[in-house]
């Protein structure tokens, strides 16, 4: 699914370029559940943003499902991302002004689905995540765990092939974290590829592969 070849990311500074990612060559197959680990500043989140196609400013090659991302125009890259990738964030990043239903509907609205289709899909997801009763609540009316549950539901609502999760349990109690990780495992078993950034060895055990980064270099896991 994903092929990275000699991928590098750097920033220009007065004293020269500072490298955040160095010479990353990596393959991730469909159906994998990969955990990216490493100390702070190792380049985990940067790699996740590149994989998520938010950041196109890198060198090397990034191939996603046989398409060379680094050769795509920003608009095409965004289209590719919209079709294939869902995101889960550490801070949930739900929109405070929108209800649970509207938050779930948002990614679909950006995919230009008809209203009736959107209603059907969101209804299914609400049902699947057992949050039908919360659909009219605002994020501030939910607990942290419930918010992240909505966050995950939102990530899968557009049926992505890949979910990218940045510290998905970082802001949750351990019980809530466990529930979320179980949910990821279930989604993975249903066929969704998952890549998570985590500091937690326990969370990493839910996956089937760990990639370790150190000072921007791939330390292990290729």
């Amino acid at each position: 699914m994903i092929e990275l070849r000699n991928l590098e990311k750097s920033y220009p500074l007065a004293a020269g370029r500072v490298y955040v990612l160095r010479n990353i060559t990596l393959s991730i197959a469909e159906g994998e559940f990969v955990s990216i680990m490493g100390p702070s500043g190792a380049g985990k989140s940067t790699l996740l943003h590149i994989l998520g196609m938010h950041d196109g400013d890198f060198t090397g090659e990034y191939e996603f499902r046989a398409e060379l991302v680094n050769k795509l125009k920003p608009r095409d890259r965004q289209e590719l991302q919209k079709r294939n990738i869902g995101f889960v964030f550490q801070s949930f990043h739900l929109l405070d002004d929108l209800t649970v239903y509207e938050n779930l509907e948002l990614p679909l609205s950006y995919r230009d689905l008809k209203k009736s289709e959107r209603q059907a899909i969101v209804g299914d997801v609400l049902d699947k995540f057992n949050i039908v009763g919360k659909k009219d609540l605002y994020p501030s009316q939910l607990s942290g765990g419930q918010q992240q549950l909505v966050g995950v539901a939102r990530a899968i609502v557009a049926k992505p092939k890949l979910i990218l999760a940045d510290e998905p349990t970082g802001n949750l109690h351990s019980d809530q974290g466990r529930e979320i990780m179980e949910l990821f495992k279930k989604l993975n078993e249903e066929g969704t590829t998952i890549i998570q950034v985590t500091h937690s060895e326990t969370n990493a055990t839910y996956g089937n592969r760990v990639i370790r980064l150190k000072d921007g270099w791939l330390a292990s896991g290729n």
């Binding site: 608009r75 991302q81 964030f89 990043h93 950006y110």
Partner: peptide, 16 residues
């Protein structure tokens, strides 16, 4: 700013 970034992350084009 966070909201706009998030919308972009969820697939909103710059036109949207």
């Amino acid at each position: 700013r966070r909201e706009m970034s998030l919308r972009a992350a969820l697939g909103a084009s710059s036109l949207r």
